[in-house]
Design a protein around this nucleic acid. Structure first.
Length: 316
DNA sequence: CGCCAGGAGTGGA
DNA sequence: TCCACTCATGGC
């Protein structure tokens, strides 16, 4: 009926919505959210209820509109928390930028990527499942696999004739068989990893709360790596993206290694001690630095008036 | 055709 | 502890 009520989240210093949107739409076919010119649409699950929200950048606030789903005060409060966590809005980036400026090779990042926040994956099961899907394959293929999985096992919300998907619940995936997932071109081992992971969640053996209750990062990593299919890379990736451990480094990440080489921090991809020494200068900001390194690998199309459009990959 | 992608498990030395 | 091998398939 009337105009939908909005939720207003104050913009912190060093928050750049279009930089953040870069990560949400890197040019791949990501069914996790829909990025438009000035807004991002996402279907999500909050306290067991499904919502479709639209996020727009205002002058002083991030404006969040519930397009579908409950709009009561309780939901809105949860939603505000969700958005702030998703976009990491409660962090002061000044100390990070001060560290970046100390290194001639990285100082440019504090200007060029100013306001870029570490876009997270709020749901731990989704973060783990997605990172298993993405192991050792190119992102185009990874997003395609995710879409197939989401379209078959995930929920969906239809709005104005468009379908918005939700990542499958662990209950739904726990009920799948390896053969089912093989049909989607997941490898046999990944299919088994995913189903087992879903089962572990369904049995209540693993949850965000249980992990956070552990005393430190090392014990959380060990708990994650006991699960088949979760190695050093995946465990740290999820610490970084879902648990928001500021020191999670997805060791072995091919993009990270490429970026380290490009910035002449390493010459070869296996100089582990050199990498360790380098990151030791960024205690407490390791995961942000990784994220900014990933950012450095893609050249965002420059839409400034009068300038030609540049894309990351050559076309044709 | 060969090599690399946001790796991880397994088995042998 | 440290390789070499295997898995899946798209992109280049």
């Amino acid at each position: 009926m009337g105009t939908p009520e909005k939720l207003y989240i104050p913009l912190p210093a060093n928050f750049n919505f279009s930089e953040c949107s870069w990560y949400l739409d890197m040019g791949y076919d990501d069914c996790g959210q829909q990025v438009r010119n000035d807004s991002v649409l996402k279907a999500l699950r909050l306290g067991g209820k499904e919502l479709l929200v639209e996020v727009v950048e205002g002058k002083e606030y991030l404006e969040v509109t519930v397009l579908q789903g409950q709009k009561d005060e309780g939901t809105k409060k949860l939603l505000s928390g969700y958005i702030r966590e998703w976009m990491d809005m409660d962090r002061d980036l000044d100390p990070f930028y001060a560290l970046l400026r100390r290194d001639r090779r990285l100082a440019y990042m504090s200007e060029e990527y100013k306001g870029l926040r570490l876009m997270g994956i709020v749901d731990l099961f989704e973060a783990l499942a997605w990172s298993i899907i993405g192991q050792q394959i190119n992102l185009t293929f990874a997003f395609m696999l995710k879409r197939r999985l989401v379209e078959k096992y995930g929920g969906s919300i239809i709005h104005n004739g468009e379908t918005f998907h939700l990542f499958p619940s662990y209950e739904a995936l726990a009920a799948a068989s390896v053969e089912d997932l093989r049909l989607m071109q997941l490898s046999r081992s990944k299919a088994a990893y995913l189903i087992n992971l879903a089962d572990v969640f369904a049995k209540g053996e693993l949850s965000r709360e249980k992990l956070m209750a552990l005393p430190d990062r090392e014990s959380r990593l060990q708990a994650l790596m006991k699960i088949k299919g979760i190695g050093v890379w995946t465990a740290n990736y999820c610490l970084m993206k879902s648990l928001r451990d500021p020191s999670g480094i997805p060791h072995g990440d091919t993009g990270l290694l490429t970026a380290l080489a490009k910035h002449k921090i390493i010459k070869e991809r296996k100089e582990l001690s050199k990498i360790e020494r380098f990151f030791s200068k960024y205690r407490g900001w390791e995961s942000y630095l990784v994220f900014y390194f990933w950012r450095s690998l893609s050249v965002k199309p420059d839409v400034a008036p009068g300038q030609s459009l540049q894309r990351t990959a050559a076309v044709g």
